[in-house]
Design a binder for these strands. Structure first.
Lengths: 251, 251
DNA sequence: CGCTTAATATCGTTT
DNA sequence: AAACGATGTTAAGCG
């Protein structure tokens, strides 16, 4: 950590890091003013300042999850020297909002290009979903009774097989992403193999217009499910005494 | 920035910083898994990790304003050594949620107690506007008399409650941005709870056409206010010699 | 572009 | 502890 440089030198460091679009982290004594949708003033104190490669801007205090000041990108960021401080001005490009920070001294400084190509996945497998539905068939429909899950057929594995409130055999197909024509074709294969008088419901967070048209034309049904809702259910339920809850407690 | 230490040494540094509740900043190659209200996995990449003095936890990627993973305090944070990595486990105390981070190498490390006693002021929030109106009820309407501000009702907090020149009870709702349907719905909730014979005025710098239609249909009223004008008022009236005003003058 | 809805929303206050 | 309302909410989807 650099902490022996003059303010002038540090200002030059920041200017250089900004111009080459590096990721910047500063731990410093500062005060900050925000003017935009509202106004705010943050008195002097030691904080973490982050400037990201896309000009995202954050000031974090030593406690609390949320930043005390921030500016979503894109921003125009400029540096100047004040009386006994470095002045950082962060202006939003698309809106009349700005944060002005006066930095009086540095405890830490870092700047570099960061290499991050890893992707981020939010998930809940179709298997996990069918397990949740086994415990909560009412999420499919009131009065629904599940006969089997992960049922192997010639046409493929049927996620959920059950009987509805009126006693009709029903196939349920789960898609954790937006359902397309492929999903509908898959359900159609199951239905054709199962024979006449079988209902089929496609469960997914969303469906494309074309897929929905095809589905209606073939007398199939669509029901929207929220993945978040489902994951909440498992989180709260398995709270009792399962491998999941033990895991969550770190045992 | 420390970047020549072994993983083992760095783990020890983190452990020590955690036990003395210091503010920790790391720039490192890591992957992260979240299990809780939802589930997610973040593949390997270089990121900023922040652990605050109250155990607030954040992982930031090189771009985007928002953290990719986080845990609100209080957390229980533990460190262990993996195959070729440091494993950081962040478990929320009040909820079954955890983030597990595997750190493979460090580009930067900082830890220290930060001293931040400066206070944070917001100006021209709806609360502050209602305070200005309390002092200047004529800005609402000639002859308007304010009974109370920030009045808590079941339906929500009524910004201003007053009596107009003709003696009618009047609800005033303030929106500092353009008022939309939500704002109108909010006022409607108040009016319905308040009963018959109550006026309601929506004060804001602007209103969407649909919201205005909805408002007229329900017999509510709209009055335009200028935030700039209001902020001028506080600029003149507010504490003239605070650190804020000195700052604004650039001292 | 504007409107609607979801979010690991967060955060404070009241019941 | 749970529920509700406000937020400099933010962010994504859709018409």
């Amino acid at each position: 950590m650099i902490n022996t440089l003059s303010l002038q030198d540090t200002a030059e460091l920041i200017r250089e890091a900004l111009s080459s679009r590096r990721f910047i982290v500063m731990i410093c004594m500062c005060e900050a003013q925000y003017i935009g949708r509202a106004r705010s003033f943050l008195e002097k104190g030691e904080r973490l300042i982050v400037i990201k490669e896309d000009t995202s801007f954050l000031i974090h205090r030593p406690t609390e999850l949320e930043p005390v000041n921030w500016q979503p990108p894109p921003n125009h960021i400029s540096i100047s020297l004040g009386e006994n401080c470095v002045i950082l001005t962060v202006r939003r490009v698309r809106k009349p909002e700005r944060v002005v920070v006066k930095i009086y001294s540095f405890k830490g400084f870092f700047s570099d290009k960061l290499s991050d190509n890893g992707s981020f996945h939010m998930h809940l497998s179709e298997k996990e979903i069918s397990e949740i539905l086994r415990k909560h068939p009412e999420l499919i429909e009131d009065g629904f009774r599940i006969v089997s899950t992960e049922f192997r057929e010639k046409a493929g594995i049927i996620d959920v097989l059950g009987v509805d409130a009126k006693g009709r055999r029903t196939i349920v197909e789960i898609k954790k992403d937006k359902a397309g024509k492929d999903a509908v074709k898959q359900v159609l294969r199951y239905v054709r193999e199962a024979g006449t008088g079988v209902r089929a419901i496609l469960l997914s967070p969303n469906i494309t217009p074309e897929a929905e048209k095809m589905l209606r034309k073939n007398g199939l049904e669509f029901k929207k499910i929220s993945m978040l809702e489902l994951s909440r259910i498992i989180t709260y339920e398995e709270h009792s005494e399962s491998s999941m809850s033990r895991f969550l407690r770190g045992e």
